[in-house]
Design a protein around this nucleic acid. Structure first.
Lengths: 214, 214
DNA sequence: TAGAAGTCGTGATTTTATTCACATTCTTTA
DNA sequence: TAAAGAATGTGAATAAAATCACGACTTCTA
């Protein structure tokens, strides 16, 4: 699986799913070819950056022509392991957790939320967005083949639950709590901190008048 | 308002709200001083990076001592305009929108979601999480003193609504839709793309075995 | 078929961000 | 009061990312 050529820059790796989604759209629209310029306008990434990103995977395009949509799509499908399903567990069926269960992460995706956990017995046994909710005490029992967890618990619980997830063998956590969790080296955490996002947007608005920079 | 010394790097600016929140915690815990090393462990940012970040604002600490929590807090409060309220509107009271309305963005924050809009007449007139929901047709009328909008509409509506927001004077948009919206130069958009986040986490897990890099 | 237009892939450059490493200064302790 | 220890702030080095700019090739058009 990870037989890959290894030096894809992180910044590039983060953009791949975005490219994939857009190429997929193009394909559905029946487009046959696309240039880095067109892609650039659609995904708001500089066209040179796109060409550079693609070039890490070899020569995917043709000079003077652009990229063949079908080829690009099948290439990215392989590269992003779109044919392999990654099982995801969601911990914490509160407002945000519930929203994610309803949110269709699956549309042309290789990930599926397979189960959810909550400490509230009132929620246990329910199905939310087609996903069964189990009690948090069952975490260790149920979490056998699950590599990825979405953490939407109250921040006070974040570290504690994280340790149980790691113990249960989870190797990737998407952390929506404001807490910065501590994990062993072999576990990867991506933080999405909603308040920070909003606050930093506000900071930029007030302190970085546009029209003159960036 | 934007009388500030101008060359705070963007990467630094994005970390400020995080620092602020943690310093605020420390203050509530009654801590009087803190070192960049301690901060580093808590927020998971290298201590040299923290010192560098702070140094853009001048010498906030004391050699051999660290930083005075109270001073740091009041400094960041000023810098992040914590005493000025930024009004926010939320567009699209679906699953995600509803979650955000309940989510307390306000805990020690300078932002407040003041109103919400939706196209569904069934939702109009309701209060969700203490915020009134108006019909999307009233957008232009109501959105007078609002600078920031949170966009949680279906992606097919994203561009259209964006144009109306911009027209109504909004200058910052937090876009949770997968669509990459187009805006005039004076408007700032931050994208939070949940599927991309999940997918890129999965990509990293499969292709960047930890323990050897990063 | 020839010239014009379009577009990639990439070396070179520039910009941005991170990290090292240490002189300097403050605090603590005996 | 003197020595040891702690921690900053920052010049310099490094690393990572973005962008420029152009040769090479493809396609289109007349």
């Amino acid at each position: 699986m990870s037989t890959d050529q290894h030096k894809i820059p992180q910044a590039t790796a983060k953009r791949l799913p975005l490219y994939y989604r857009f190429i997929n759209n193009l394909h559905h629209q029946g487009k046959l070819r696309v240039s880095s310029k067109e892609l650039s306008e659609a995904v708001k990434v500089d066209s040179a950056t796109i060409r550079r990103d693609f070039s890490y995977f070899g020569a995917l395009g043709k000079k003077g022509y652009g990229y063949n949509v079908e080829y690009l799509l099948s290439f990215f499908r392989k590269t992003l392991d779109q044919d392999e399903l990654t099982k995801v567990a969601l911990i914490g069926v509160g407002n945000l957790g519930t929203a994610f269960l309803h949110y269709n992460f699956m549309k042309n995706n290789n990930t599926k939320i397979e189960m959810a956990f909550d400490a509230d017995k009132g929620k246990v046994g329910e199905e939310v967005g087609g996903v069964s909710v189990y009690h948090i005490d069952q975490l260790e029992d149920m979490l056998k083949n699950t590599d990825v967890a979405i953490l939407t618990v109250p921040s006070s619980e974040a570290q504690n639950i994280t340790e149980r997830l790691v113990e249960a063998g989870v190797s990737g956590i998407l952390n929506f709590t404001p807490a910065r969790i501590t994990v062993p080296d072999h576990v990867r955490v991506h933080h999405i901190d909603l308040s920070v996002e909003l606050q930093s947007l506000v900071y930029f608005l007030k302190h970085y008048p546009l029209d003159e920079e960036e």
